[in-house]
């Protein structure tokens, strides 16, 4: 399972503004990886290119052993005609009902299943949205600020749960939280903007799989690396 990017160049249609020029990076194994960088640097554009929602780029952007890519983002909504529980049950794949129940519990959604999506807070809405993607068939799930507005403790529980349930899948988590990506992600791809070279730097994260916070010095070192790179 691999994402390979070689000399990727892309600019928005009908503009002369380059988002990427000769961008290179590699993500070569499954796991929970991050896409990090300041606002406007092209994280969402790269995610959309990967998901096939944007085209007309030059250079190579290839995946290997990844046949199904899903892209979730934080402003998605559910239709308002049914309750959250009915919607989740309706979109869950055959044989995934138990997984859905587990996710509902860990994500703290159990008591909101009878509510309509519009009744939920933004954090709850993002959790519901992410849960429905996790019960689909995918090899790579791009989470574009999918845990925005969720409190830190719940975010931590959710990320650890995802890492435990899906060890063989590839995740690309877009977040602005340095501590979080440093602690939980395996590879952190720091995008730095089209004017800097290299445009992307890959940093090894702590890839923690439990809430053990013992290695604070290592975590601090990774965080500093990310901040210096960005």
């Amino acid at each position: 399972m691999r994402i390979h990017c070689n000399h990727l160049t892309y600019r928005y249609p009908a503009t002369s503004l380059y988002v990427f020029k000769d961008l290179d990076f590699n993500i070569s194994e499954p796991g929970f990886h991050a896409l990090f960088g300041p606002s406007g640097v092209g994280k969402t554009t790269l995610a959309r290119l990967l998901a096939g929602k944007e085209n007309d780029h030059s250079g190579a952007l290839r995946t290997e052993a990844v046949s199904r890519i899903l892209y979730s983002y934080n402003t998605e909504r559910l239709p308002g005609w049914a309750s959250v529980g009915m919607h989740l049950a309706g979109v869950t794949r055959e044989g995934q009902k138990n997984r859905l129940e587990e996710l509902e519990t860990v994500f703290g959604l159990t008591e909101h299943l009878d509510s309509r999506f519009g009744q939920l807070s933004m954090g709850q809405q993002n959790r519901v949205n992410l849960a429905r993607y996790l019960v689909q068939d995918f090899d790579l799930l791009i989470m574009d600020e999918s845990l925005a507005n969720v409190d830190e403790a719940t975010r931590e529980k959710i990320i650890l749960c995802i890492k435990r349930i899906f060890p063989g899948k590839l995740f690309l988590y877009i977040s602005h939280n340095v501590a979080e990506v440093a602690r939980f992600c395996r590879e952190i791809l720091v995008l730095r903007g089209v004017r800097r070279s290299p445009q992307a730097i890959s940093i090894h994260g702590q890839d923690q799989t439990s809430d053990d916070r013992s290695d604070a010095a290592e975590l601090e070192r990774t965080m500093l690396e990310i901040v210096h790179a960005s």
Partner: peptide, 20 residues
């Protein structure tokens, strides 16, 4: 923002699209 999920997961059909 609503249709994206159904398109991405291959669930979209004309009835659902019109309903949304």
């Amino acid at each position: 923002d609503i249709e994206h999920f159904f398109n991405a997961t291959g669930r979209m059909n004309w009835r659902l699209q019109v309903k949304i």
